[in-house]
C-alpha cells in the first residue's frame, strides 16, 4: 500500500540488530500501537513473537523478520473468504446494503462498487436510503450519473426503509443484476437510529434476501472502530468490511481486532475519492504497510 510511517520505517531495522533486547521489543510494540492495532493486541503479538524467537533460537534478522510478518498475517487470517456476493440469483438481483457511522465513505463506496459492476457489464440500481443528511441523495445521484446507474430516491425525511424497499422492487422489475442501498451515517450509540437500520434490512428482506451488509470503516478510526463493528454486527449482521481512506497515513490496524472478534472479513479497501479507487483487500499489502514496507 501507499501509506508510509516514520515509525514503520525502523521496524525491520530493529529486528536486524544483533540482539533483540527489551528496547527493541518495546519499539516493535510501539509500531503496532501506532498503527491502531490496539495496546492489548500489540502486547499479545509481541509476546507470541518473543516466545517463538526464543523457542526457535532465531538469530538471523531475516528469520525474525519473517516471523513477525507471519505473525501479523496470521492475525489477519489470509484464508478468510473475501469475495463480495454480487451475483444475481434467478430473477432476483443481488442486494447489498452499505452501513456505518457518519462520514466514513458509504456513499462514495456505493458509487465505486456500482462502477466496478457496471464496468463488468452488469446492471445496477442504487437506493438512496439516506433521507436525512443534507443533499445525501443528490450526492448519490451524482455518483449514479458518473458510473451509469439509476438512483431510486424520495424526498428528504422520507422513510429510509420504504426507499430501500422501492429500490429493490425496481431492481426486480427491471431485472437488474445488483441493487446497492446507501444508508445514512449513524453512530452505533444511537439506539433509535440503529433500530431504524434494523428495520431497513427487515423491510428489504420482505422482498429479497440481503446478500451483503458491508460495514464501512474509516482507516483513521482508532479503538472506537471495534465498538462500531460490534454494534453494527449485532443489529444488521454485517458480512464484510470496507476499509476506506487507506490512501492517507493511517494504517487501519483496528481491523485486526475487529476481524478476530467478529470473524467478519475485510473485503474491500478505499484508496481515494475517484470512481476507480476501490480494491480488494490484500492481507499481505496491509501487513507490509504496517511494517513500513509498502
Amino acid at each position: 500500500a501507499r501509506s508510509q510511517s516514520v515509525f514503520g520505517q525502523g521496524l525491520l531495522g530493529l529486528l536486524s540488530r544483533d540482539t533483540l533486547d527489551d528496547d527493541a521489543w518495546d519499539e516493535i510494540e510501539d509500531t503496532l500501537i501506532t498503527a491502531d492495532v490496539g495496546v492489548t493486541s500489540a502486547t499479545q503479538i509481541v509476546q507470541s513473537l518473543r516466545t517463538k524467537v526464543k523457542v526457535l533460537g532465531t538469530r538471523s534478522p531475516e528469520e525474525a523478520r519473517t516471523l513477525l510478518r507471519e505473525e501479523l498475517l496470521a492475525q489477519i487470517n489470509p484464508d478468510l473468504e473475501r469475495g463480495v456476493r454480487t451475483e444475481p440469483h434467478g430473477d432476483r438481483p443481488a442486494v447489498l446494503m452499505i452501513v456505518g457511522v457518519n462520514g466514513t465513505g458509504k456513499t462514495t463506496t456505493s458509487g465505486k462498487l456500482a462502477r466496478v459492476l457496471v464496468g463488468d457489464g452488469r446492471s445496477v440500481v442504487l437506493g438512496a436510503a439516506d433521507t436525512f443528511r443534507a443533499a445525501a441523495a443528490d450526492q448519490l445521484e451524482t455518483w449514479g450519473g458518473r458510473v451509469g446507474a439509476p438512483v431510486v430516491r424520495k424526498d428528504e425525511g422520507a422513510d429510509p426503509a420504504s426507499v430501500a424497499f422501492d429500490a429493490v422492487s425496481r431492481g426486480i422489475e427491471d431485472g437488474v443484476d445488483a441493487v446497492i442501498i446507501d444508508t445514512a451515517g449513524r453512530l452505533h450509540t444511537k439506539t433509535g437510529l440503529m433500530d431504524e437500520l434494523g428495520k431497513v434490512k427487515r423491510v428489504v428482506e420482505k422482498k429479497s434476501q440481503v446478500d451483503e451488509v458491508l460495514l464501512v470503516l474509516d482507516a483513521t478510526t482508532g479503538q472506537n472502530g471495534l465498538r462500531q463493528a460490534r454494534v453494527f454486527a449485532e443489529v444488521v449482521n454485517i458480512t464484510g468490511i470496507v476499509l476506506t481512506k487507506l490512501d492517507g497515513t493511517a494504517k487501519g490496524g483496528i481491523i485486526i481486532q475487529v476481524q478476530r472478534e467478529l470473524g467478519v472479513p475485510v473485503k474491500l479497501v478505499g484508496l481515494g475519492e475517484g470512481p476507480d479507487d476501490l480494491a480488494p483487500f490484500d492481507p499481505e499489502a496491509f501487513v507490509d504497510a504496517i511494517l513500513g514496507e509498502g
Binding site: L187, T220, G222, N224
Partner: peptide
C-alpha cells in the same frame, strides 16, 4: 486514532490553524 499526530502536524505545516473543532463527540 493514532494518525491524529500525523494529520494534525500535516495541516499545521500545510495550511496552519489557530484552533481546533472536535466533532462527533455524541458517540462513545
Amino acid at each position: 486514532g493514532q494518525d491524529a499526530v500525523n494529520t494534525a502536524q500535516a495541516f499545521l505545516d500545510g495550511v496552519g490553524y489557530d484552533a481546533v473543532a472536535l466533532t462527533k463527540l455524541d458517540g462513545d
